[in-house]
Each structure stands twice: as structure tokens, then as C-alpha cells.
Design a protein around this nucleic acid. Structure first.
Ligand SMILES: [Mn+2]
Ligand SMILES: [Mn+2]
Ligand SMILES: [Mn+2]
Ligand SMILES: [Mn+2]
Lengths: 241, 241
DNA sequence: ATCATCTATTAGGCAAGCCTAATTTCGTCA
DNA sequence: TGACGAAATTAGGCTTGCCTAATAGATGAT
């Protein structure tokens, strides 16, 4: 069972990390089905594993109600997240990886590196606060500063914004963003948003405007640079939490 | 099963590597017991695993006669060895690890790194020919140049020699060698050898002579710098293969 | 040749994780 | 209230690797 360097199995670490990821940073109970989807494992198998993790005190499981990490579970999850993200930084900064290739590599390495190695990497990198996709890196002692970002899908027309965070699971998508000139830190203007789940069109300096599908636009975390536009588009909702 | 990056299980990779290590570089069949000892696994379990590896075409198993790697098995074993040794180099040269700490780390990482990552590390390092303990690193295409070294235990008195290779499994032993001023490349003179499995005494420039136990002396691979001493000691044997 | 002693294999079991199929529970809507 | 569909759990199985105990093969000494 202890094939990782902290005595947890690879499966356990991936479960904890996935639960943490699905629960936001706190609170919210995670459904069996969602977890099964995230891990590409059958719901029945997840049920079984949750019982075990619960027995080990890593999460609390109200049957038919979902799971919630315990303090211990959350701490261990954040440890894995830190490893994963430090690794991604190291691979891009020191070994010439593209941002679209690091996730798969880190997904395996996160279970094999020791704390010692992770901290040496962090030291060499100067304790980076964000990974190459803009995700915040938990500190050694398990703190994490979740940036409050707005999905591109909800940025009002006319706004000047900056791309701050991208979901890293799909390498293809990251390559696509690169081809558009979009990376973490890129500034752009939202020039159009079509209703009925239509695309979002953005303009980057020196490039023709591009229309992005709503599904993609929902996964792009942005920081607003220019506040309210003059006339708010009719399909905009009040900014939900 | 495919939890490594080449589709082999961690267990399989460790078995292949251990068999390769015990067989020298060729030929010699490996006994179940020796393998069990090297892997710290019961002989019964090893028997079972050998049947599986044999069925998968990685080795040939004559029951009660030991095993021998097939060409495929040897190729895969060398791939793991290359990973392991490149990793050890990278950890010492780029991340400030001491030579006594790298083995344990590499033992886990060797199953998680991709070929891509290993080759990037090798590139950054300039394709090192030896790992930090002096062991030769197989090339990408599975060739390995086994250096012909003489165990310190067999170096004649009066000879000037150089430490070229050290077994890396025991961190404590490596720390001990460091404390004596011995590392790969260190030159010294053999000043005494006691019969009846007695210790070997060596002299390093600027240090008082040190007597080393025979068991240790047998694991230190040396290159001779000065040939025949004047009077060969009476307990010396003709240099065996 | 025979026995004692290793060495190796087989027999029987177990835990971790995964799967599919069957069943139960939840929640919602008529 | 009752029934239906979705979500979750349970039942039953499988593979990988590992273990201990029991058996069988190889070997050297008598
Ligand atoms: Mn990632
Ligand atoms: Mn993972
Ligand atoms: Mn090593
Ligand atoms: Mn290993």
C-alpha cells in the first residue's frame, strides 16, 4: 500500500486530490458520480474506495450524501497538490517543457517525489506562488491563497481583462490557446458575447478577434482590468459566487 | 498494471533490474533465493512472480535452475537502469543531493519518469557516462560499457589505485566513505592487507592510514595506477575473472 | 544408495483496487 | 401519496503481488 513517499497509495492520493479539486477549497460535499467522472473510474468502485478512505479517517462519508475531506484528508490533499504544482513549475522552468506537457508528467511524479525533493525544487525556483497554468501553489504548511477570478464566460463586453488561470487537464486545449496567443498574463478585451450559450469574442493586441466556445470560456479564469462597461449586455447575470 | 510510463508495473521493473544486477552483465542464471534477498521478498512470492514474467516473455525460467533475462527483458532492464542512474546524476548535479541520498529517491522515481523527462535530464547534464557512484549509464539504445575494475580487496599491497565505483544501496556506508575522504576519483595507496579475511589498510594523501573491513573492501571497485609491487604478498591469489 | 539439508515450487490466503450487474435510496413530479 | 429516474451502494468477480505452510527437487556426505 505505501508506494508513495508519504505512506499513501497512489490511488489514495489521486482520490484526495480529486475530492479537494471538486470541492472548491472548502465545504461543498462531493458526489460519488462526479468523483467517478473526474477519476475515470466506475461509481461502484468509487463507492468502495470511499468506504476505505472514510475508515482511514481521511474523509467523512454520509452514504447517499457525498463526502467531505477531514482536516487530515485536506492536509494530505494539499500536500499532493503542492507536489504536483511545484513539479509543473520545475519542468517548465528548468527542463524546457511546454505548459501543455507538464500535467501528465506531474500526475505520475507527484506520487514518487519525496518532500525533500519537492522542497529542493521549490528552493531552486524561489518558491513560485503559481503553477504554469496560474493555479496557486499551497505552502509547505498547507495554506493556499485561492485567487478570486472571473470566468471569461462572465466577463462583460468591453472589459479589458487578463488571463490568469487555465484548466490544465487537456493538453490539446492548451496547445490551442497557445496558437491563439493566449497564455497566463495575456491581456485582451472582450468584444462580444452571444446569448443562448453562444461564443465569447475577444481581441488581442495585433491579432484579429477570436470567438471562443462557451465551454472553453467558462474554464478561463480572468482578472478584470477595466471595470463596468457603459451598457451591460442583456444576458448578463449578477456576478454569482 | 501499467503504472509506470512504459507499461510495466513497478514490481516488474524492480524484478528486471534486480535480475540484471545479479547476473552481472550477461549469462549467469539468477537463483530464486538471491533475487528474494535482493528484493526483500519471500522466495515463494518470487517463484510466483517469475512464472508471470516468464509467461510475459521477459525471462526464461528453468524451474529449480534459476532465470535468465530474454533479449526483451534485458532491454527493459537496461532502460530502468538508465533512468535510475540519470536520475541519480541529476539529483546530485542539479539539486544539491549528496551521493548517499540519491539512491532511495531514484528507486521510486525510476518508475514514474517518462523517457522524455529522462532524456531532457541527460541533455542538461551532457550525457554523463557514470552515475555518482561510478556505475556506467546505459545509452538510450541499450548499450552499456562495463568498466573492468578490481575490488579493493584484491589490490596488491604497495599499489597506487583510484576509487572508481561504489555500491550505492547503503547510505550509511556512503557517509562513512565520505568521512574518510573517499569518493569516486580519490587516489590512495594500499599499505597493508591482513590474511584470514583481515582488513585492508589504505593511505590517502594528508591523512593517517585507515583500515577497512574486507566486506567493505570487496565492494569498492578500483583502477590500478601503479602496476606490480616489488614483493607480492604471500596471500594474494592470481587475479580471478 | 540414502539421508539430511538446502532450495524452489505449490497450495491456500489476503488486501488493494478495479469492473459489471443487481439492488436500494433519494428526490422530484404528477 | 406514489411512482419513476438518477445516484449510490451492494453483490460477486478478477488481477496483481505479497505472505506462510506444506511439499518436492537437488545435492553432498555418509
Ligand atoms: Mn496539473
Ligand atoms: Mn496522480
Ligand atoms: Mn542507485
Ligand atoms: Mn525501484
Amino acid at each position: 500500500m505505501p508506494q508513495s513517499s508519504v505512506g499513501l497509495s497512489q490511488a489514495t492520493e489521486d482520490y484526495l486530490k480529486a475530492i479537494y479539486g471538486l470541492a472548491g477549497d472548502q465545504e461543498r460535499a462531493v458526489q460519488t458520480t462526479d468523483l467517478a467522472g473526474a477519476l475515470a473510474i466506475s461509481p461502484a468502485s468509487v463507492s468502495g474506495m470511499l468506504r476505505r478512505l472514510s475508515k482511514d479517517g481521511l474523509l467523512s462519508h454520509l452514504p447517499y450524501r457525498g463526502v467531505r475531506l477531514t482536516a487530515t484528508g485536506r492536509r494530505l490533499a494539499l500536500r499532493v497538490v503542492r507536489r504536483h504544482r511545484i513539479l509543473e513549475c520545475y519542468l517548465t522552468n528548468r527542463l524546457g517543457y511546454d505548459w501543455n506537457a507538464v500535467h501528465a508528467e506531474a500526475e505520475r511524479l507527484e506520487h514518487a517525489v519525496s518532500d525533500e525533493l519537492v522542497e529542493r525544487m521549490a528552493l531552486v525556483l524561489g518558491d513560485p506562488p503559481y503553477d504554469p497554468h496560474g493555479a496557486p501553489i499551497p505552502t509547505r504548511d498547507g495554506e493556499i491563497a485561492v485567487p478570486s477570478l472571473i470566468p471569461l464566460a462572465e466577463v462583460p463586453i468591453g472589459t479589458l481583462a487578463e488571463l490568469r488561470m487555465v484548466d490544465d487537464k487537456d493538453a490539446e486545449r492548451l496547445r490551442y490557446l497557445t496558437s491563439l496567443g493566449l497564455e497566463v498574463g495575456t491581456r485582451f478585451e472582450v468584444v462580444d458575447r452571444q446569448p443562448f450559450d453562444g461564443p465569447v469574442t475577444i481581441g488581442l493586441p495585433g491579432r484579429p478577434p477570436v470567438a471562443l466556445g462557451l465551454a472553453l470560456a467558462r474554464t478561463l479564469g480572468c482578472r478584470i482590468h477595466e471595470p463596468e462597461p457603459r451598457s451591460p449586455p442583456e444576458d448578463s447575470l449578477p456576478a454569482g459566487a
